[in-house]
Design a protein around this nucleic acid. Structure first.
Length: 282
DNA sequence: AACAATGCCAACCGCTGGTAC
DNA sequence: TGTACCAGCGGTTGGCATTGT
């Protein structure tokens, strides 16, 4: 059967989100919660497809997101989980509160993969690379990699890794993870410590079940975890800008001392233009 | 200083699985 | 049982930032 496009693409905006669009999306979800994504852009007054809205929310605007590089322990966990689950980024992300599948995927492709290759470990199989095979990688190799794709052997190996051969690879990978996180410390910004996590409910909650019994279980369950802030928060929000908000989490603007500045964490690689958010109370 | 190469990440694309009818 | 619709997933890409020459 032919699938209809997720939305009418004519006249829809693509590319980077503007601050104004972010604001619309956040305020809509604040008011209405996460419902049918297909309807969100229309109801929120956005010229985006629902899919784009969902992605923007889950990968960037969600208040329980941690920002910054993955810590060593998180990296170890990713390696270990990857050895068991393969490229199931959403499953891996489910074990790392505040991290998105996209973020983990990117981190894997840009950092971890490289580290493993440098150590002579095949990031696909988590086993030592036989001498003689190439282990270099760069962003520009991705084309060849993508074009060629994994070798049948590698693909099979990954499949094995992710399905049946979990016991051996887990053991291997535990050691690998230990080694990798040790000598290679690429993190050049302070780590987020567990106590700095902005939305405790995400960390405290059990890992989301991968099996959804209804279409709403995944994201909606997550929505239920999110403690929507009090109304006073909105003043802080506009005072500090929504980018700060999305970066640090809503709770940092609702902290007991009532001073969002204390909650602001300067370590992040926050580089986005904040000009457009300086309105209202400024 | 100018240009090229490389790194990085947000966002997009297309597919899959689940569900309602 | 088959079809249509939806949310979610994983792979890929575009473009900006950074680094090297």
């Amino acid at each position: 059967m032919g699938r209809q496009p997720c939305c009418d693409k004519v006249g829809l905006k693509k590319g980077p989100w503007t601050a104004e669009e972010d604001k619309k999306l956040i305020s809509f979800i604040l008011t209405n919660g996460q419902c049918c994504w297909r309807a969100v852009p229309k109801l929120a007054g956005l010229l985006r497809c629902g899919k784009s809205c969902r992605l923007r929310w889950t990968n960037y605007l969600r208040p329980d997101l941690k920002r910054g590089l993955l810590s060593e322990s998180e990296e170890k966990m990713v390696i270990d989980l990857h050895s068991q689950l393969g490229n199931r980024w959403s499953k891996i992300a489910a074990h790392l509160p505040g991290r998105t599948d996209n973020e983990i995927k990117n981190h894997w492709n840009t950092h971890i993969k490289k580290k493993l290759k440098k150590m002579g470990i095949d990031p696909l199989t988590h086993k030592p690379i036989p001498p003689g095979s190439s282990s270099s990688s760069s962003d520009h190799e991705r084309t060849e990699e993508a074009a060629g794709g994994p070798t049948p052997d590698a693909a099979a190996a990954e499949k094995n890794t992710s399905t049946t051969d979990t016991t051996t690879t887990t053991t291997d990978t535990a050691a690998i993870a230990e080694t990798v996180a040790g000598p290679f410390c690429t993190d050049e910004v302070p780590m987020i410590q567990p106590h700095e996590m902005v939305v405790p409910c995400a960390a405290d909650a059990p890992a989301p079940s991968s099996s959804s019994s209804s279409s709403s279980s995944g994201s909606s369950a997550r929505a239920e975890e999110i403690q929507l802030p009090c109304m006073e928060w909105q003043e802080s929000m506009y005072l500090w800008g929504l980018d700060d908000l999305s970066m640090n989490g809503w709770e940092s603007f609702c902290c007991e001392d009532g001073d969002g500045k204390l909650a602001f964490d300067p370590f992040t690689q926050y580089q986005r233009d904040q000009e457009s958010w300086k309105f209202e109370l400024f």
